[in-house]
Simulated assay, not measured.
Amino acid sequence: MLRQGTPTYPLIRNIGLSGMLVSFGDQLDEATNRATLAFRSAINELHLSGVVETATSLASVFVRFDVKELSHDRLHGILADLLQTQDWRDAPLPQGRRFWRVPTVYGTDLAPQLAEAADLAGLSEEAAIEQLSAAQVRVLTIGFAPGQPYLGTLGENWDIPRQTQVTPQVPVGALVLAIRQFVLFSTASPTGWRHVGQTALTLFQPDIADPFALRAGDELQFEAVSKAQFLRLREIGAEQGGAVVSEVAA
């Protein structure tokens, strides 16, 4: 029996004067995130007059709209009807997603917290590199900084806590880890997550028409390379940091 006030999902809520949020859960799991990606794609395919933009978080879809063209009641009704069309937690992921193979140096002085993270996961550094470089993760959402992805989920042994103190700064392209997720930094930034890998991938280029390299739903694999190989990629300015991109099969 639900406690009084316990929300049931999916849940539609107003956000400010011109926003609406459709939430599929109160915590992250694969099916919840899948629902957000599929539902946002379905909203976009409706081409609703008055919808200004849509975006996903880990477990919700945000819809911003022009109240002069689309009323709260009408949008709420459209979203509620759309929710009834299928089980969104079991929906196919949207088409057009991409798979990125990203050269990554693990450990060394470029990513100095690999040993600490490996120890928390109960692994040697070598075993940690093997697991992390073999993992295929999905862009769960973009946030915190422009073009910056949260990626997951990793195996249960990687459910390691955030640090108790903040690292003052990690560089652009830093791959950090906590709570079964990676974050790949688009800007130099402080972080409470452990810096385990370093890439040369540029995620945010504000001067081009499509400034974000990644999109929610894209898949990535951070393949291990030596420090010497990584430095060579950075020295020659390899396009996309040496990453190889292909379409995800439908």
Score class of each variant (00 low, 15 high):
118 A>S: 13
231 L>A: 00
58 L>Q: 09
127 A>N: 06
91 A>C: 06
37 L>V: 10
47 H>E: 14
67 V>P: 06
207 D>S: 15
192 G>C: 06
17 L>H: 14
86 Q>H: 12
165 Q>L: 07
7 P>D: 13
133 S>Y: 13
100 W>I: 13
112 P>M: 04
219 E>C: 11
99 F>L: 12
50 G>C: 05
209 A>F: 13
96 G>T: 05
158 W>M: 01
145 A>P: 01
30 E>G: 13
150 Y>L: 14
6 T>H: 05
204 F>R: 01
149 P>C: 07
197 G>V: 02
102 V>K: 08
186 S>G: 14
170 V>M: 13
186 S>T: 09
82 L>R: 10
154 L>W: 00
139 V>A: 08
16 G>F: 07
135 A>S: 11
161 P>F: 01
114 L>S: 04
194 R>W: 04
202 T>Y: 00
195 H>F: 06
125 E>Q: 09
198 Q>C: 01
40 R>N: 08
156 E>S: 06
115 A>H: 08
109 D>Q: 11
192 G>F: 12
52 V>W: 15
196 V>K: 03
136 Q>T: 15
51 V>I: 15
226 S>V: 01
173 G>Q: 05
223 E>K: 04
112 P>L: 05
231 L>C: 03
216 A>P: 15
78 I>R: 06
142 I>C: 10
49 S>N: 14
25 G>V: 08
135 A>I: 09
97 R>V: 06
24 F>E: 01
200 A>W: 01
81 D>I: 08
234 R>E: 00
147 G>K: 07
44 N>V: 06
242 G>K: 04
150 Y>H: 10
10 P>E: 06
97 R>C: 11
131 Q>Y: 05
100 W>T: 14
63 V>N: 06
98 R>H: 11
115 A>E: 11
91 A>S: 07
222 F>A: 02
75 L>T: 05
86 Q>V: 02
75 L>C: 12
208 I>Q: 15
36 T>H: 10
216 A>E: 13
227 K>Y: 00
6 T>F: 05
132 L>E: 03
97 R>A: 15
150 Y>G: 04
125 E>C: 09
184 L>Q: 05
36 T>A: 10
101 R>T: 14
8 T>M: 14
229 Q>D: 08
11 L>N: 10
229 Q>M: 00
213 A>Y: 08
155 G>M: 00
66 D>E: 15
133 S>C: 12
145 A>Q: 13
90 D>G: 02
192 G>W: 12
96 G>D: 05
128 A>Y: 09
119 D>W: 01
165 Q>H: 02
78 I>P: 05
21 L>S: 08
75 L>M: 14
28 L>A: 13
83 L>F: 12
72 H>L: 14
10 P>W: 04
